[in-house]
Design a protein around this nucleic acid. Sequence first.
DNA 1: CTTGACGTTGACGTAAACGTAAAGCATGAT
DNA 2: ATCATGCTTTACGTTTACGTCAACGTCAAG
Lengths: 138, 138
Amino acid sequence: MIGPMTSAAATRTSEQTWTIAQVAEEFGVTHRTVRHYEDLGLISPERRGTQRVYRRRDRTRLGLILRGKRLGFPLEEIRTIIDLFDAPRGRRTQLEYVLGQIDERRADLDQRLKDVQDAIAELGEFERRCREDLDRLA
Amino acid sequence: MIGPMTSAAATRTSEQTWTIAQVAEEFGVTHRTVRHYEDLGLISPERRGTQRVYRRRDRTRLGLILRGKRLGFPLEEIRTIIDLFDAPRGRRTQLEYVLGQIDERRADLDQRLKDVQDAIAELGEFERRCREDLDRLA
DNA sequence: CTTGACGTTGACGTAAACGTAAAGCATGAT
DNA sequence: ATCATGCTTTACGTTTACGTCAACGTCAAG
């Protein structure tokens, strides 16, 4: 079967769902990787019987996970970060805790931003020198 | 002994050098880490007899390595990148190869830049919602 | 000349992040 | 009914990036 699972006449108004093969394909990872993230508690798809059923929420989290990986964060840290987005924010103390965590994360990301910008700048400078060398050769 | 090695009356005009303990301390890593990078060929300090002698060049490379790590690049890839900076650029074909590599690297870094910017933006949006919640609680 | 303090080379250990079978269900198609 | 597909768990293997001894060299200070 091709395309999202719609279980025929059943849950049409309900949310769209995907199989593990579909999300793995979509995000360019293996099913093993997806299940590994579940083992670590980064995603928790429902079960239709024994099979995993992925919803939009799971795909969103998977996207956050992979972006976090591209930025070099370890999976455990990524888990605490994306859990933060779903954390309860009812009480004032909880909200203040969350806001504190946000500041920590931002400091981390600011460092990454500086790193990337510096790297890009140096690469540009290096390219400029290379082009100079190339011109001199002409 | 404290401070950089100056070998008393000898090489004063020569370059300043450091011991492994000094560079490790300076960059906040262990000596084991520094030697590991050497094993992988990311740095290659000279030897004064049996001991390693680090110069400015080695410290520069070490800085590049650690920044690459913060950006999530594997050490092997980092090696190819920083080797690029020291690559011979005498012939035109070599220069064109280097310029091609630069473009690949830049594409990678551009993706990282977008990732960081997106993450920071989402974090800001999330913080805004949290502050709204906090205001409503007041 | 012996003691530290620091440096060196193995060599094995480990944690993270999966890879890779192996072997068993479940379900639609023939 | 069986057969192929796809999903499942279990479990051991692998790679990366070091940690952690162990055992030895070396050199200035007491």
